[in-house]
């Protein structure tokens, strides 16, 4: 297997090399991530696909260094060439939000219910001292327009629970984009949404990639979403990358049994179960 999808002359935004995450338990060691190597290039959406327990979310949280304290991490994680694993916590706080944004699965759970939406979208800008006052307000409105929020002037004053699921997710994306991060990590951002709303969010993520040049790591279990959105895909199973390649190649001519099984298990709109075969 090719170790990574290196591009000559271009430095990846994110380069993970031989990442291992272990948890010490009373009875032995549990390995969540078992030697993962992957890259994300500027302006590229990289899908990381797998089922529960495949290690896909642990890989993402390792990059943000948001692992539980009991986790034992080894290997290398470089952001624009800078090694993150050795970085002290204070420096890591600057990386989070500023250079890496996380778009979570459940937007409502991640928004503070007691703070207005506009305040939360602007909070990273204020925290990282990139703006205040009317300049900040203008920037917040720009961000909310950029993510397609309905009636931004009114919505800045709204509380999170007053927004629909799709609009909550757009608010989270606006928050993530506030500091123009180099890397966006999206952890199943559309899993909780209706299909028609999901289609709108996928369009938005595509537009962000085209516009910003940021790299995006898209964690999902949905092969359909990967096919629609991603340029390159890594398939994970049991903490390892079992297959990777350009998305069309992996999904139309998978090399591994596991990928074939995932594809076969994805329910199809074309035919009922009886015709798909059992």
């Amino acid at each position: 297997m090719v170790r990574r999808h290196a591009r000559p002359g271009q430095q990846p935004v994110l380069a993970i090399d031989d990442l291992r995450v272990r948890f010490r338990r009373r009875r032995g060691v549990v390995t969540a991530v078992d030697g993962v190597t992957l890259e994300v290039h500027p302006g590229e959406i990289v899908g990381v696909i797998g089922e529960s327990g495949s290690g896909k979310s642990m890989t993402a949280f390792s990059v943000m260094r948001l692992l539980p304290k009991t986790a034992d991490l080894s290997g290398s994680i470089r952001l624009d060439g800078q090694e993150l694993t050795a970085l002290p916590e204070a420096a890591m706080r600057d990386v989070r939000g500023n250079r890496i944004a996380l778009i979570p699965q459940d937007a409502l759970q991640s928004l503070n219910p007691t703070l207005r939406v506009g305040f939360q979208v602007g909070e990273p800008i204020a925290l990282h001292r990139r703006g205040t006052g009317t300049g900040l307000r203008g920037r917040v409105l720009d961000l909310m327009r950029a993510v397609g929020m309905a009636r931004p002037e009114q919505t800045v004053r709204a509380w999170p629970h007053q927004l629909s699921g799709g609009m909550q997710q757009r608010a989270m994306i606006a928050t993530g984009l506030a500091l123009e991060p180099r890397l966006i990590i999206a952890d199943e951002p559309t899993t909780a949404l209706d299909v028609t709303v999901q289609a709108g969010i996928l369009d938005l993520l595509r537009a962000i990639r085209d516009r910003s040049g940021a790299g995006m790591m898209f964690i999902t279990h949905d092969l359909g979403v990967v096919a629609e959105l991603c340029d390159y895909v890594y398939v994970m199973n049991g903490g390892r990358v079992v297959e990777h390649g350009p998305v069309e190649q992996v999904l139309t001519a998978p090399a591994e049994d596991y990928t074939r099984m995932l594809l076969a298990a994805t329910p199809s709109l074309d035919a009922p179960l009886a015709e798909v075969g059992t």
Binding site: V195, T196, Q198, A199, G224, A227, S268, L269
Partner: peptide, 14 residues
């Protein structure tokens, strides 16, 4: 029709 079109299907995307 809109609902069906919105379903991402790995078999049709390409």
């Amino acid at each position: 029709r809109r609902l069906i079109a919105a379903v991402p299907d790995p078999r049709h995307a390409f």
